[in-house]
Write a protein that binds this DNA or RNA. Structure first.
Lengths: 256, 256
DNA sequence: CGAATTGTTGAGCACCTTCAAGCTAAGTGG
DNA sequence: CCACTTAGCTTGAAGGTGCTCAACAATTCG
């Protein structure tokens, strides 16, 4: 795990970049791991697994080995219900992790599928466990990532439990926008990798409702919508709406 | 479990029972921690914090120090929205843990309040971190508990995203029943510590709807309902309903 | 280019919410 | 101990939000 032959530079073809060379470097395991420690971590990570649109990363029921970090592209997590329909439980954008919900069990409780061509880092959980035994910061980071996931799910609970359809879509867009921004991408313009169906499932709405909302948001000059390409026009109002759809309308929300 | 100094018996007043003496012993940190290790864990746990009905364990925004395990009684977790109304995010029964969602932040993202007289063990997170650095099994267990929480939240997402009111209440009752059973209590008869309002919030429904459902379930001989005291009469049908309300009705669901 | 999948739009209706009133239970003070 | 107050629960009636069904448009893909 320590001694490294100079295999860092790979001839060509497969873009096998080490974490240090990866744009997502500070993002996957955010901070505080010093360089020596980091090399150990780098050593266990299996880099650049690539999936094409529609391919599965794992399926519900498969045995759990690794957690994953998204490099470029996007992934959806979902559970399939008895009657065949899916409930989308999360979208994973560049720099985000997935697979954490499986740690408790021997097998994955949900499936993960690429929404577009996506590359990921695979982190064998067994070895990550050993490693974080030795590297306190790593343990803390791991717990934080999991805690963050819990937090995210709970904010989703509020969304599904209390919010109207308007508020849900607004909150969804704000969330995506914020996450892109954190990763250094544009917060105003982005492409939604997922289908309207996926969005509807995630937000607990019918597809038709989501579709109607997009056109209405467009008419109200909140957004520019061209299929999957979204541009946020009135960020302030969208934020206000994400919290409370009734108060926003008409008069501008007070400008922060 | 073998050599014990006679410090087990405490003079009197404050019922300061060690974990070994606690009925929830194997439940909080389920398994596999050997005795020596366990004593270390036992050493950092602050036992028997007691709350009366309505008292807060912590409030949203307070700084995070500890996670908690419920001994007897029950706790609700909830976030308060801008407009004052609450979204209940979880109920915590004997043997279950709470506070995990705060690990990522310095402060608690939600509040926790006792639904009845409740005693808890407080586990300072800082020291638990150090300890699990030394005791691999403990680290694994901690991750598992968190992963389980994620899993639970995700099953709730499905509930709120896809299920009808009938299915939601049925699933809720099945969940409570199952959890009591796991802890060695009756799976058929139990008292719901929370108000109808709390249940409604948790399930994303109006209070009136929940109330109506209880009376309907009673009329259909699924349950006996006397205020907060519930007895499950037709467990099979309730289970079937929790998954798919339409298929269940009339004809018996196939018996497992 | 044609087939298939995905997205949009419209109309009607169902489920659940909202509003409103009465009821029960619990806690308080005289 | 009872009257009073208050909060919580139940029940009814009306209305709206979002769903279902259905047809059509647009996009993707072989």
């Amino acid at each position: 795990m320590d001694e490294k032959k100079p295999d860092k530079v790979i001839p060509f073809s497969q873009p096998k970049v080490s974490c240090e060379g990866c744009g997502m470097f500070q993002l996957c395991l955010p901070i505080g791991v010093d360089l020596e420690e980091f090399k150990e971590l780098d050593g266990i990570i299996q880099r650049h697994r690539i999936l094409r649109r529609g391919e599965y990363l794992y399926r519900a029921g498969e045995t759990f080995h690794s957690i994953y970090a998204v490099g470029a592209g996007s992934i959806k997590s979902f559970t399939s219900l008895e009657d065949g329909c899916e409930q989308v439980t999360g979208f994973h954008l560049p720099g985000e992790m997935l697979g954490l919900e499986a740690i408790n069990e021997a097998h994955h409780p949900c499936s993960a599928k690429a929404l577009e061509t996506t590359n990921l880092c695979e982190i064998p959980f067994e070895r990550l466990g050993e490693l974080s035994q030795r590297i306190p910061v790593l343990q803390t980071e791991l717990l934080k990532v999991m805690s963050k996931e819990i937090l995210h799910d709970q904010s989703l609970l509020v969304l599904l439990g209390k919010k109207s359809a308007d508020e849900r879509l607004a909150a969804f867009l704000v969330s995506i926008s914020t996450r892109y921004k954190q990763r250094g991408f544009s917060a105003e313009s982005f492409r939604l990798g997922m289908s309207r169906n996926d969005i509807a499932s995630y937000l607990g709405l019918a597809v038709e409702t989501v579709s109607r909302l997009f056109t209405r948001f467009h008419e109200e000059n909140l957004l520019q919508v061209h299929g999957k390409d979204i541009t946020i026009c009135d960020e302030v109002r969208l934020h206000a709406m994400a919290q409370n759809a009734k108060e926003y309308s008409g008069h501008n929300a007070r400008v922060q």
